[in-house]
Design a protein around this nucleic acid. Structure first.
Lengths: 346, 346
DNA sequence: TTGTACGCGTTATCAC
DNA sequence: GTGATAACGCGTACAA
């Protein structure tokens, strides 16, 4: 490792002068500058970013911690983050928790050792409220996406999950559905609970109080959705189908769709389907029907997270920002309206 | 920011003692330890990783620079890297060049400022040989995947692209094909050139010297593949089809497949197709036929890159490692063998 | 068991 | 235009 003093020695000057040269500052004679540049080139000197950041108290980098980097679901979020970062001249470092909360926490800790100027955390599977509190009270600049910190004073980019459920249920009623069942996701995920709550609330607003038989507990994966519907069909037969299934995620919806089609059930004729996430199937092994779903503006959420975070880094705001995004309905082929109207389909 | 001295002051001891406590070293009385722990908790102290890494000359992190994080093609590579990293107790930071060579270089520079202990670079679109030379001569631990540095002394994880072409061509001949055309990728990418070379070589070994009409220059995207075949059909008509198209990538193959099917051409009856990459279609808007293709062991390549890199970090090897991986043929539904044999299909 | 002194590589301040 | 010095926050040899 060649340091700034090595360069200074060889160039026959002080480290200060070298520092001025590499930082393109004024107050260096052309002669000195030239000589120093030559030595830098000759020695292959690269400034030590650690030392520099240590004294400057600035890394010019943002850390992003995501559940996993191997899921196309996050592409929009990543793209949003990258495009916004570019405008601010920061670097972004992505880390994946590999779907493990523990590893996620470990990466957050890593970044919090002053290794970046701020952190964006996508918080779908953050369960450890103690840990969150620790982050928030630490004063380290953080922007939390998708996990609601409630009363805690932290930058929070949220999606109104309940509202998505309302959109789904309202639309299904518009399609003439009366009995709408909900296939819910992991109960330990905030988003899944909110979507369930939203479903119940929306149903009530239509005069229906969902009982236990109408709520099928499932998970997040296609396989879980498949098994849940498979089990449902086994227990209830094909003749006791509801008018519609509203799934807590597109992945479970794809699985459910598969199970239904395999049983010879027609969609949307026999039963309508609505998902959540506006996601794509992971595999290409089955002819899925384009799914009516709830779309989340992940791209915009990513951009906003960066904007808020960098703003916070610069201004050290006392009161953090909370922004709520609203999802929208995307109508495709697993639903059909009874009355012909002007709704655009995609 | 609360520092180790802040803790020491409040605990009424020296910074040394605090250092020993946070590093779980021996030689601290239970009483002091307890007191210090309390103060750490109270002040919410987190060690400064920059300062620590600066003195230890060790970050315990590896940087990975990839063309893009928003392409499912890299999932296997990422998974391989993450699983291997775990075994070594390092952290991984991923950066995306966003398909821009310039940004890729800028991230490499960022990491090289001693911000990580080593870098993994996926080098499909590295063109700046000067820059590569600079990296290699810098002595900074690096593992280069997919870009052949030739004589330069650098850790190099390669795939024998020519061999993949040989597999494809040999198999197509086995299928009874005589005229095999190649749709080649971006000429400025090493891999594309190698695949083209491999195609020519393999054809020659079967006694055919490909002329210009047999090589269709295209790109990497589905759209480019679509346009290339569309143009071919326009110029040559449906009756002058070759026996097979061998594409330089699966994406172009998917595009080509689409153009062919749209023109009412049957696959594999009228023409056979072989791709390269074992990739999936980006969209779900078309019923693609499962594609016969060349599979690259990206997972294993990622693992190997990490293994070699960490080994190099620890031992500072004078002579770097070069490892060549070999792809294999995956037979699906866009080809059909003439003679029934024992080849397993997937 | 505890503390002092120094060094890691850099930048900023303030002299000269 | 140039350089000595201190400081960033930490770990460690050495001394007490």
């Amino acid at each position: 490792m060649v340091s700034i003093t090595d360069v200074a020695k060889k160039a026959g000057c002080s480290a200060t002068l070298v520092s001025r040269v590499i930082n393109k500052q004024y107050g260096v004679s052309d002669q000195s500058r030239k000589k120093i540049m030559e030595v830098i080139e000759e020695l292959g000197y690269t400034p030590n970013g650690l030392a520099r950041s240590l004294v400057l108290k600035k890394t010019n980098a943002i850390g992003v911690v995501i559940d996993t980097l191997c899921d196309a679901y996050f592409f929009d979020l990543i793209k949003g983050i990258e495009s916004e970062i570019d405008k601010h001249g920061y670097d972004v470092l992505f880390c994946s928790g590999g779907n493990s909360a523990e590893k996620k926490n470990s990466y957050i800790n890593f970044f919090m050792q002053e290794r970046v100027d701020g952190i964006v955390i996508y918080g779908s599977n953050l369960d450890d409220i103690k840990f969150i509190e620790k982050i928030v009270t630490s004063k380290f600049p953080v922007a939390l996406i998708e996990y609601d910190v409630g009363e805690l004073n932290a930058n929070n980019i949220l999606l109104n999950n309940q509202y998505g459920s309302k959109l789904a249920v309202d639309y299904l009623f518009k399609c003439g559905c009366k009995s709408i069942y909900h296939v819910s996701g992991d109960a330990d995920r905030q988003a899944a609970r909110r979507r369930l709550d939203g479903y119940i609330e929306a149903m009530k607003s239509h005069g229906v109080i969902p009982d236990e038989t109408m709520i099928l507990e499932s998970g997040w994966t296609e396989e879980q959705g498949y098994q849940t519907i498979k089990k449902f069909l086994l227990e209830n037969g094909k003749n006791k189908l509801p008018d519609a299934f509203y799934f807590g995620s597109d992945q479970t919806a794809f699985g459910g769709m598969k199970a239904l089609i395999e049983s010879g059930i027609s969609i949307p004729e026999d039963v309508m389907l609505v998902g959540y996430d506006d996601d794509n199937p992971r595999k290409n092994d089955f002819q899925y029907i384009p799914l009516t779903t709830i779309h989340q503006p992940l791209d915009e959420m990513g951009k906003t997270a960066i904007r808020i975070l960098i703003n916070d880094i610069n201004e050290k705001k006392a009161v953090k920002e909370k922004i709520m995004f609203y999802p929208n309905l995307v109508i495709r082929d697993t639903t059909r309206e009874k009355i012909v109207s002007n709704v655009t389909t995609q």
